[in-house]
Design a protein around this nucleic acid. Structure first.
Lengths: 136, 136
DNA sequence: TATAATCCCTCTAGTAGCTATAGGTTCAAG
DNA sequence: CTTGAACCTATAGCTACTAGAGGGATTATA
C-alpha cells in the first residue's frame, strides 16, 4: 500500500495532480486509511504510470480515458487504440508545421539592427496591415 | 467611428475577444454612443491589428503589452522589442524540438498491426515501465 | 508517552486566452 | 413605428493543472 506521496514519487505525478485525476474519473477512488488518507495498490500505480506516459506523449485526458478503457479489455480489437494514436500523431504534425511557419516569420521579423523603435523591424512588422487577411 | 462588430470584421478578432482585450488593458477604453455602445477610431483599429498580428505570431498578452508600450515610444532604443521577439523565437524553437521528439515516439508507437488490444503496441508502450524516469 | 516534523485532508481560487450563455437594451432599415 | 440585427453586462465554462488556507494524521525521535 502506498500513500499519495509515495505514489507521487514513484510515478513523477504531483500530488494535487493525482487528486485531480481522481476527480476527473481517470483513476479509481482508492481505499482510505483509518485517518481518511488515500492508500493505493500496485494496480493504482500501474494505472497512474499509464496515464503519466500518455500525458507525456501529449494525449488529452479524454483520449486517455478511451485508451484506459481499451486497455481494460484486451480481447477487443486494437483498431480504436491505433486510431487515437494516429489521430494524435496528425495533430502533433499539424502543430509542428504551424510552428515552423511561425519560426520562419519570427526569424524574419527578428532580423533587426535598427537603433530606435521608430525603424524597428519587429514593431513595423506587427503594425503592418499587409499581413491582414481582411481589407482595411 | 466603428462599432465593435465593424472592428471585429476588419481585424478578424471576435467580438468577445475584443471586449476581453479591453478588460485586460490591451486596448484603450473606447468612447461610447449615447446608448452605451462602444465606438472606435482608426487608432483603435490599428492597435487591434497590431495585437492580432502579434497573437498570430504566438506572443503572449504580457509580451504584447510590452511591445505596444514600446511602439508608443518611437524614440526608445529597439533593443527591448528585439529581445522579446528573440526570446519568443527561442520558445517556438523549443516547442518544435519537443514536438519532433514526440512525433518520433508516436510514429514508433502507432506502428501496430495487432488484432486485439492484448498485443497492441500502442497500449503496451503506454503501460511500459521502462519509459519511466523514476524507479518503480 | 509526549512532541515535533512531516505528511495528508478538503475547499476555494487562480493560471492563459478566450468562448458561450442568459437576459436585457440599442440601433438602423423599411 | 416596428422589427430584427447588433449590442450591452455578468457569469460560467473550457484544459490541465497549481497554489494557498486552515486544519487533521502519521511517524520519528526524545
Amino acid at each position: 500500500m502506498f500513500s499519495i506521496g509515495q505514489l507521487s514519487e514513484r510515478t513523477g505525478v504531483k500530488i494535487p495532480t493525482i487528486r485531480y485525476y481522481e476527480q476527473m474519473g481517470l483513476i479509481d477512488v482508492p481505499e482510505r486509511s483509518e485517518g481518511n488518507q488515500r492508500r493505493y495498490t500496485a494496480d493504482g500505480l500501474n494505472r497512474l504510470s499509464f496515464i503519466r506516459h500518455s500525458r507525456d506523449l501529449g494525449f488529452s485526458i479524454e483520449d486517455i480515458k478511451g485508451l484506459l478503457e481499451l486497455s481494460q479489455h484486451p480481447e477487443k480489437p486494437c483498431h480504436d487504440a491505433h486510431g487515437i494514436a494516429v489521430q494524435h500523431l496528425k495533430n502533433v504534425q499539424d502543430r509542428i508545421a504551424k510552428l515552423r511557419r511561425l519560426e520562419g516569420e519570427l526569424k524574419r521579423v527578428s532580423k533587426c539592427d535598427a537603433d530606435s523603435v521608430a525603424e524597428c523591424a519587429v514593431i513595423e512588422a506587427l503594425a503592418d496591415h499587409s499581413l491582414c487577411e481582411t481589407n482595411h
